[in-house]
């Protein structure tokens, strides 16, 4: 007991300095004005930005769903491959992450530009050009591209734990591939799906670089909004803190709902 507590100390100190204290500060700023007196003005002002908040949630949701659709079959195939191949596949998944996040997003900018490589190619074969940059589609693409590994990895690590003999047992009991999937693989992979959704949705909903670089000015997201309050022209840290607090509470709600769903689903399967 004593040992485990003392070994956890560095982390606890870290948490207090970099998580607990900032959280208290954010809460403090959210409920005060520039002079430090208590006010609800910041909180009530948040509702003026409902459109931005909903756009963020919507875009993050779409990106998460697309990530799941791409990552699930991929993770499954990788998890069933031979050990040597698994390593190669994982390396390919991780490879883009070795490059700087900003650089990757800049690359997409040049690709998607009106006079960018893709449009020039399209013009060459006689279709286009299309407006790709500064659209919501571009933002979703950027999010999917950047966060896909965070969906693949938890799914993969969950699926490697689904033993082959369970799949064989299902086949043995008369289940064709479709049933093996719906009755065994899918329910057993749900924890991985939940983790993947969390790992993609949370950073996606609060991103600001991707939306600014690929979405232009018209597709502002919560992250951009918060950044503007702290570093931008609209300088108003108290409002920024209030929006941050709102976003945090929203994410917490989403997560607890997800967990609820996960547990309920388990119950549902038992009945």
């Amino acid at each position: 007991m004593k040992i485990s507590r003392s070994t956890a100390m560095p982390y606890i100190i870290w948490m207090i300095i970099f998580t607990v204290i900032p959280l208290i500060l954010v809460t403090y700023f959210a409920f005060t004005d520039g002079n430090g007196t208590f006010t609800m003005a910041n909180i009530s002002e948040v509702k003026d930005y409902v459109a931005v908040i909903f756009r963020s949630i919507w875009l993050a949701f779409v990106a998460t769903v697309i990530c799941l659709i791409i990552a699930y079959p991929l993770a499954y195939v990788v998890s069933r491959a031979s050990e040597k191949k698994q390593k190669t596949y994982l390396l390919l998944v991780m490879l883009p992450m070795w490059m700087n996040f900003l650089l990757r997003t800049y690359a997409w900018m040049t690709l998607l530009e009106n006079t960018g490589i893709i449009n020039r190619l399209l013009v060459m074969i006689g279709i286009g050009p299309f407006a790709m940059i500064n659209t919501q589609g571009a933002v979703v693409l950027g999010m999917v591209y950047n966060y896909l590994p965070f969906m693949i990895l938890p799914l993969y690590s969950n699926m490697t734990k689904i033993e082959n003999r369970l799949i064989e047992a299902a086949q043995d009991l008369g289940a064709p591939s479709r049933k093996v999937f719906s009755e065994v693989v899918w329910p057993l992979s749900l924890p991985g799906v939940m983790t993947g959704i969390t790992m993609v949705f949370v950073p996606a909903v609060s991103t600001f670089i991707i939306s600014r670089m690929l979405g232009g000015g018209s597709n502002m997201m919560i992250g951009d909004l918060i950044e503007l309050q702290f570093l931008g022209n609209a300088y108003n840290p108290n409002l920024g803190a209030a929006i941050s607090l709102g976003l945090m509470i929203f994410i917490l709600l989403c997560m607890s709902m997800l967990n609820q769903f996960n547990e309920e689903d388990k119950e549902g399967m038992i009945i």
Partner: peptide, 12 residues
């Protein structure tokens, strides 16, 4: 039908 080594029962 098979009774597998270590049973392979469905944990869920």
């Amino acid at each position: 039908n098979t009774v597998f080594q270590k049973y392979a029962l469905f944990p869920h």
